[in-house]
Design a protein around this nucleic acid. Sequence first.
DNA 1: TTTCTAATTGGAATTATTCTAGGTTTTGAC
DNA 2: GTCAAAACCTAGAATAATTCCAATTAGAAA
Lengths: 152, 152
Amino acid sequence: MKAVENSKTRGPLLSERLTTSGLRLTRQREQVYRVLLQKRDHPTADEVFLRAKRQMPDISLATVYNCLDALVQCGLVRHVHPGRGGSRFCPNMREHCHFYCEACGGVFDIDWPADHGGVPMPKGFEAKRYEIAIRGVCPDCGARPGHGAPPG
Amino acid sequence: MKAVENSKTRGPLLSERLTTSGLRLTRQREQVYRVLLQKRDHPTADEVFLRAKRQMPDISLATVYNCLDALVQCGLVRHVHPGRGGSRFCPNMREHCHFYCEACGGVFDIDWPADHGGVPMPKGFEAKRYEIAIRGVCPDCGARPGHGAPPG
DNA sequence: TTTCTAATTGGAATTATTCTAGGTTTTGAC
DNA sequence: GTCAAAACCTAGAATAATTCCAATTAGAAA
Ligand SMILES: [Mn+2]
Ligand SMILES: [Mn+2]
Ligand SMILES: [Zn+2]
Ligand SMILES: [Zn+2]
């Protein structure tokens, strides 16, 4: 039985995207990508490592960092920078911004309307991409004030 | 001769802002704030430390971190998170966003038009503040391609 | 299949930041 | 002014996140 790419868990592109970027398809890269697609909660590298180890006990943290880097390089994953704590990773490549809940530390994708228009750049500045961070309180934490687990 | 507050280098508010936040005015906090106002290039904590030491050789790095924290707490300084490398500090409290030059690593203030409108939030999300990062190439690096010093 | 090179691995190293414990300064009550 | 309490500063240790390194393994082109 030939393995068929399942876009639900693996995404349709991994093998192609890697090779067109001059990178190889490896078990570890598949596993790291699978982990990211399975639970889209913007895990840290260390969280990805813990989840990946469940099915691949010998994978190393250094490899997880390498794989995440490869996935970012070939355009399948975003590297997200939440200020405090380690950076996080997101397999949603649609244009969106990130909401950081100050009560529970959760990270949420927020749609970013296509008509954003951007910010007018002063002469000479060449903007390649925008990253919008929104800090506040998520629905769950807003509903039960004082009960949000502190971030970290 | 009574010392007069010089708003060019010290800003008009340090003493007041600290005390209204329940914090004390100290030599070290003055010095750290002075350093930030003198060269507004978004230095890292370590860069602030090096600059502050020139006039106050006994100041410690831990104190610089503490002072920066106090200045952020009392609303005189912004804590800026550029993804890679250490976080940076900015005494410009007007609404603005940050341009990160991918060639030289420089950080620049970009005015953020007042009519930005914000991003429409899904039900339940309470947005407290926005942070916009723009990545690209600054005027200097755009003018001499290939000559921008690599960031770091 | 062979060969070449990219990728993986564990551990050490580096970087950025926070913590700790002890000494100093400021503040405010007396 | 004197004194105690609280805030602050300091050096160095500790922690957290990430990168580097040298040796092995494994993908894929020929
Ligand atoms: Mn996301
Ligand atoms: Mn700024
Ligand atoms: Zn929350
Ligand atoms: Zn530049």
